[in-house]
């Protein structure tokens, strides 16, 4: 597993305490899990995705990630409606491991409140949180 210093935590996304990231793309927001989460989970073998059109509150579980011997829930970093899901993950769940911020994105949502993204942490705040947990 990676040491904290080895993690890739880009500045162009915001971070949730439960290790998801969110990035504003126009009116919508793209959401995935970050480098720390994918590293902790290990090789991801299956991603259970929500249905397009479903709505979730912030903090609500919208899907699961499975490694060989663990299942972990993925939570909404902001409230909103699912507008797209990454269908490539069905055939290639390893994208979440390899490119968590790009090809490994998980869902796209239309947020109820576009400003809610500002309640999430910046990369340095998130890093501090991780270090605090050491």
């Amino acid at each position: 597993m990676k040491e904290i210093e080895e993690l890739f935590l880009p500045d162009n996304v915001r971070y949730a305490e439960t290790h998801e990231w969110a990035r504003a793309d126009g009116d919508n927001m793209t959401i995935g899990i970050n480098d720390y989460a994918q590293d902790q989970l290990g090789d991801i073998v299956f991603v259970e995705l929500p249905e397009i059109g479903a709505t979730f509150e912030k903090g609500e579980e919208f899907g699961t990630l499975e490694s060989v011997k663990a299942v972990s829930e993925i939570y909404m970093p902001v409230s909103g409606e699912i507008t797209a899901i990454n269908e490539d993950l069905e055939e290639a769940p390893e994208l979440v491991n390899g490119e968590p911020y790009n090809a490994g994105w998980i869902i796209e949502v239309k947020p109820n409140d576009p400003d809610e993204i500002n309640t999430l942490m910046s990369s340095s705040e998130y890093l501090e949180m991780l270090k605090g947990g050491e």
Binding site: V45, F46, E66, V68, K69, A70, V71
Partner: peptide, 12 residues
Amino acid sequence: LATREQHIRREK
């Protein structure tokens, strides 16, 4: 596909 099973998913 053991993630369906009780030893991993327990009550779910």
